[in-house]
Design a protein around this nucleic acid. Structure first.
Length: 261
DNA sequence: ATGGCACGCCCTGCGTGA
């Protein structure tokens, strides 16, 4: 399916709270794909009609209060999958779908809370399972995009103050090694395919100073297989929604491709 | 400067996020 292809990912921190912002954003940017994380809505309360009215097909897997992922597409999808095969997980963090010959894997990687905690061990085990899953996906999909909230800042330039975050959750060595392990499968960080300004982040703490002083981290990513990397023309963070009233604490990441078919 | 927000929950302070 050759032609231009715009793919975006956004942790919305409650789809119901952010629905109007998501609809506005879709109307403005008209992405072919928008992957969402932290929808925080069970499937029987998913705002399907509103998104369909905006012209999108939707695959979703959610739960009450926490987690939840979805993939919105302008064209119909095939092969929707939920979760990681063989990895038992009650938390809804993974959904996949194929559109226009591109396989999309939408991930909401666990936060980890505190290095060394039970939740941190869960994060590492989850990342290990995700790596094996993505290895298998790469073997069967020439065009694979792994997108979402990875809850890992890959490098010092992805952290506003690396010294203060050194060894902390989201920027510990073991998490960064797990992220590097994903790249080692043959994936590229689409954002780093291009020259970028300094201090570009995708998440900032809530509060009066976090976003205004750009005290953020780049933890939301678009990882692409080698074929897609060759077709990628741009990758950027759209910081504007972070300045809205009642914003998500994350901003969307957008990648533009020219699919060669 | 997440001590100092914001989410859901279903009641109000708690668990969780990042």
């Amino acid at each position: 399916m050759p032609g231009s292809f715009k793919l975006a990912t956004w942790n919305v921190n409650s789809l119901n709270v952010r629905l109007a912002q998501v609809l506005d954003w879709l109307a403005e940017h008209e992405p072919d794909v928008l992957a969402l994380q932290e929808t925080k809505v069970p499937d029987d309360r998913f705002p399907l009609a509103e998104l369909q009215a905006a012209g999108y097909h939707v695959a979703y897997s959610g739960q009450r209060a926490y987690n939840g992922v979805a993939i919105l597409t302008r064209e119909v999808t095939s092969d929707v999958s939920v979760g990681i095969p063989g990895f038992e997980d009650e938390q809804r963090r993974v959904i996949g779908a194929t559109v226009r010959g591109v396989r999309i894997a939408c991930l909401y990687v666990p936060n980890g809370q505190v290095v060394g905690s039970d939740k941190f061990e869960y994060k590492l085990g989850w990342l290990h399972a995700a790596r094996e899953f993505l290895r298998a996906e790469l073997a069967v999909h020439e065009r694979l995009a792994v997108v979402g909230d990875f809850n890992i800042a890959p490098a010092e330039r992805d952290v506003h103050d690396p010294r203060r975050w050194e060894g902390k959750v989201l920027f510990s060595d073991v998490e960064r090694a797990a992220f590097a392990g994903l790249l080692d499968l043959g994936l590229s960080d689409a954002f780093r395919l291009f020259e970028q300004p300094a201090k570009v982040f995708s998440w900032w703490p809530y509060g009066k100073v976090g976003f205004p002083r750009n005290l953020g981290l780049r933890i939301d990513h678009v990882l692409v297989s080698s074929t897609l990397a060759g077709e990628c023309r741009e990758c950027r963070v759209d910081t504007r929604p972070r300045a809205h009233e009642r914003p998500s604490d994350h901003a969307p990441v957008i990648a533009q491709f020219e699919l060669q078919g």
